[in-house]
């Protein structure tokens, strides 16, 4: 464990807590894409298949349970909690996210480190996570004004993988034979997808204006 990875995990945890806070306290999921949340459930479900078979550390297992539990409960809230579901704009959140999964599955079957069930599922979860934010970014373009909590959620979610990139650089230079191109490239693509959001988020913060992505 290094400081970059810890910062990444804490930023990721913060993003999830911000979203849960928004949904649980103000009972609203306005501006939040259910499609992205569903994709994250699949990302964690396929990423943590080994949660009961391989033990790395208490921290590792605890964080896996937190990410699994929070992503499932966010989807549950948005789908089945009456008050929250009412605030979900289904008309705008129309990204066909199941179509995102197909290329990720195919790519995972083609490009992986080892052709085993676990490894292919794990690689699939990496590819899927890289594009999971797309429905949310599309929804952002459509809904003109987004509230601060949603903006913070996306900012933290994008930032965590940025810290992971620093972690991979650190590990590359400090651990011999630590080379994982698949992880690195999908992590880089994932972070780059947030580039324009980060830009407009920074502008809105600098000019102290509401965050608005150009249509």
């Amino acid at each position: 464990m290094n400081i970059f990875r810890l910062a990444g995990d804490m930023t990721h945890l913060a993003s999830v807590l911000v979203l849960l806070l928004k949904i649980h306290t103000i009972k609203s999921c306005a501006g939040v894409s259910l499609k992205t949340q569903e994709l994250y459930v699949i990302v964690f479900a396929t990423r943590y298949l080994d949660i009961f078979t391989s033990f790395v550390s208490i921290y590792n297992s605890l964080m896996k349970l937190i990410f699994l539990g929070s992503s499932f409960s966010i989807v549950w809230y948005m789908r089945y909690h009456k008050a929250v579901h009412r605030t979900y704009d289904r008309e705008q959140d129309t990204f066909r996210h199941w179509f995102l999964m197909l290329p990720c599955i195919l790519l995972a079957l083609l490009i992986h480190e080892k052709f085993t069930f676990f490894e292919v599922m794990w690689t699939f979860s990496l590819y899927l996570e890289a594009v999971a934010i797309l429905p949310q970014l599309v929804l952002l373009q459509r809904t003109r004004n987004i509230d601060n909590l949603t903006g913070q959620y996306i900012f933290l979610l994008g930032g965590y993988r940025g810290f992971y990139i620093l972690n991979w650089i650190y590990r590359y230079f400090t651990e011999p034979h630590y080379v994982h191109w698949i992880t690195w490239i999908s992590g880089l693509v994932q972070t780059l997808l947030y580039a324009d959001f980060f830009y407009y988020y920074f502008l809105s913060w600098k000019n102290n204006k509401k965050l608005q992505l150009p249509a």
Binding site: R5, D9, H12, R47, D50, S54, V56, S57, N60, M63, K64, F67, K114, T116, E119, W122, Y164, N167, T183
Partner: peptide, 10 residues
């Protein structure tokens, strides 16, 4: 034989 390196990252 080369052990499958356990995934230590989240």
């Amino acid at each position: 034989e080369e052990h499958a390196e356990t995934k230590d990252e989240l």
